[in-house]
Every structure is written in C-alpha cells, then in structure tokens.
C-alpha cells in the first residue's frame, strides 16, 4: 500500500439543486483522508467526465435526485469508456428505485446508495473498491 490518497470527484449532474447529500458526502470523504473535488451543481455528463479525467480521479460519485438518472448516468459511463477511463469507479447516490439501481449496476455502476445510507458505509466501500 502506498501513501497515495484516493481521489474522488463528487458530481451533481442534471438540473436538480438538491446538494445537501453531495456536500455531506464530499466532506465525509475528505475527513476520511480522500482527495475530494466537488463539481458544484447543474453539470453535464461531458463536464463531469472531463473533470474526472483532468483530476485523474479514482472514483466519481454521482449525486442525483431529479429522476433523470437513467438518462444521465449511462451517458457518463459511455463517455468514460470512450475516453479510455473505464477504470474510474462510478458510484451513484440519490433516490433511485430498485429496478433502476439493478440496471445501472448491470451497465457498470459499482454501487448505488439510497436514502438512509451512512457516510461510513460509503467511505468503507470506496476504500475497499479503489486499489491504492
């Protein structure tokens, strides 16, 4: 194990302004010793992928509560693949119905965290899933 910090982009795609969860997660990941880049609101999939690549992120955490997850998340996965960045771990948090969560995982999302998930379980997941 090296001393390299896990680098995570916390991203808010789409039009919804619900940033309470994203900010809590960003802070909890930082407190857990990770390098966190928070994109801010209203990002397009292109902007998110660009940030992930520029920042050499190990993981992208997508926070979405607008109901547009089935449009926006697959697009982010696609763009990552196109840019040869499919090794970036993608996790999603928000109000995502179970069938949609299953489908997103099939498409390559590593985990979907719903309402009530704790920051410590998300920290643990990232620590376990990102090879450092």
């Amino acid at each position: 194990m090296t001393n390299a910090k896990i680098r995570v982009v916390v991203a808010k795609p789409g039009l919804d302004g619900h940033d309470r969860g994203a900010k809590i997660i960003a802070r909890a990941l930082r407190d857990a010793g990770m390098e966190v880049i928070y994109t801010g609101l209203h990002q397009t999939p292109e902007q998110i992928v660009e940030t992930a690549i520029q920042e050499d992120a190990d993981a992208v955490g997508i926070s979405i509560l607008s109901g547009a997850h089935m449009t926006l998340v697959p697009r982010i996965l696609d763009l990552l693949r196109k840019d040869g960045a499919e090794d970036v771990l993608v996790v999603v948090g928000g109000t995502v119905p179970q069938d949609d969560a299953d489908e997103l995982k099939k498409q390559g999302v590593a985990a979907v965290f719903g309402p009530g998930a704790t920051t410590s379980e998300i920290v643990d997941f990232l620590k376990g899933a990102v090879p450092v």
């Binding site: 789409g14 919804d16 607008s66 547009a68 449009t71």
Partner: peptide, 22 residues
C-alpha cells in the same frame, strides 16, 4: 418539473430525461 424551474423548454438538450419527472 426541473426544466421549467430552470427556464428551459422541454425540447432543450439539457432537459433530456427530466421532463415531467418531478
């Protein structure tokens, strides 16, 4: 819905997937 709240018509590119959702 979100596009209306953000001043975007339903056929705007940024509205995709969000029309009538919330």
């Amino acid at each position: 819905d979100m596009p209306t709240l953000m001043g975007l018509d339903s056929d705007h590119a940024r509205s995709e997937g969000e029309v009538g959702r919330e």
